[in-house]
Design a protein around this nucleic acid. Sequence first.
DNA 1: ACCTGTCATACCCGCCAGGTATCACCACGT
DNA 2: ACGTGGTGATACCTGGCGGGTATGACAGGT
Lengths: 287, 287
Amino acid sequence: MDTLETRELRYFVAVAEELHFGRAAERLGMAQPPLSRAIQQLERRLGVCLLERNRRGVRLTGAGEVLLHEGRAALDATAAAARRTRRAGGADSPGGPRNRLVLAVKAAASHELLRKLLDAYAAEPDSAEIEVVPCAISEQEELLRDGRADVALMHTPWNSLAGFDSEALATEGQIAVLPAGHPLAARKTLSLADVSDIPGLPLARWPTRGVYAPGPGPEVHNQTQLAQLIALGRTVAVVPDSARSWLWAEHTAVPLADAPPVVTHIAWPAHSRSLALAGLVRTAVRL
Amino acid sequence: MDTLETRELRYFVAVAEELHFGRAAERLGMAQPPLSRAIQQLERRLGVCLLERNRRGVRLTGAGEVLLHEGRAALDATAAAARRTRRAGGADSPGGPRNRLVLAVKAAASHELLRKLLDAYAAEPDSAEIEVVPCAISEQEELLRDGRADVALMHTPWNSLAGFDSEALATEGQIAVLPAGHPLAARKTLSLADVSDIPGLPLARWPTRGVYAPGPGPEVHNQTQLAQLIALGRTVAVVPDSARSWLWAEHTAVPLADAPPVVTHIAWPAHSRSLALAGLVRTAVRL
DNA sequence: ACCTGTCATACCCGCCAGGTATCACCACGT
DNA sequence: ACGTGGTGATACCTGGCGGGTATGACAGGT
């Protein structure tokens, strides 16, 4: 009577994202009429109008927005249940695959810390196998939520720790990376205001979830591009202190006095009860 | 192919909790054979053995334990989606019911703070209606997770804030409540060690999720009972400072130097994006 | 051996999810 | 005004599967 089925949620989320029954049906691999009917039934069962069908297209109502957000979370949770159960399967078969943890990391971030963590954990008795999955920083939270990863190394303030349990592992300041010859490169320390508006040297822009914020600086999408553009005297960047390890001879790093500190956390789904995870976290906080 | 249906999760959780197909089927309002078949199908689709059926009963495998935990979380999330969508429905109908927030509080805890919060929020422009739901402290997290509540006043260290966003609102120490005539009642301050083992005056025991920890003290399940037993000289209790407001003349409160401080938080589901909630939180942190 | 309690199997039925064909509607062209 | 294309809704049919009843297989307790 009042239990939403996963199928209905999948259907609604597809329609709400496409705002078009035909395209949503195609994405779901089905015909359009049964999809229309399913959504109508969903609205009747919830006693709520989810979509506003006016001529030419569909719009979400307030309740529809709520169901889109909550439904995505619910679908993530069920997908996580399936994935984690599959991975746990066979763990009790004698001599079967070892319990395995999937660790999501932003590529090249905190790799010193990561190396130490992996070495220390592997030395522990009864340690599980760790599969390291490099991904974009904006994907880490999604991976944890839908069960593709069990634990992640995250960096505030870029990652949000909302909804996860976490332990802080390290704190570092931020530096401005300038072309070696630049006048400001001679300074002992700089402020954010100093570097945010240098004439002829705009701050580089990173994509956030695939889209670039508007601004004058060049769009970069990997660290090598950034390094080159700085070396060529075309841009400046603000990065955490540990990025010094990949700087070139043509770069100069100057500490930023007022930039927010970057904190590396180990984070995991709040309800997780895995012994292997607990061991990894214990190892991490002891580093 | 690989999407778990809500129905399957409901079935499995019932079986995993009962560890008995017959009783689980009865609880689900269905016959036992289709339930057996559904679980078998689930195991085949996941490619994982969830239950160990030996003679006489059923036991969970490791994968089964994982699915029980993760499945409960997923079911909570879908139930929350349905409830919150229903409540959001009608909010856009002109002149319809105001947007409403459900606030879960432990009965009688932080009632001074609660009163100030409700008054201050009601004075805000565009404030939503607040429905206050009193409940046991162990139920608050469940209410937030399955959508019966939108926000809660929680108290560390008794509540766990795992999986929620929160803001700390107030910190208070703890006091020992003694019978007025007791020798220790003359002391200016006490330590936990002082009160944990007073001859003839054992610490009262509160239920945690309905069950009492073993121990010598009397079992109490509400504040009036506790007050009376203390007044009769049968027990001692350790409570937060704000509990002074309900003490009797026959009680004496003595501060505890080494008890962990009690922090009152306002907490809400981490993914929540409600404007009304944001307003309430803003009001709360300004108090 | 018997009975008892457990879960699995066999078989049947009715419902509903999904497909196809079509309609109703509106915004466009001209 | 009139087609025309593209939208979501309706009508109707069918197959699969979720669910019920009856029964089997098997292990313990007596």
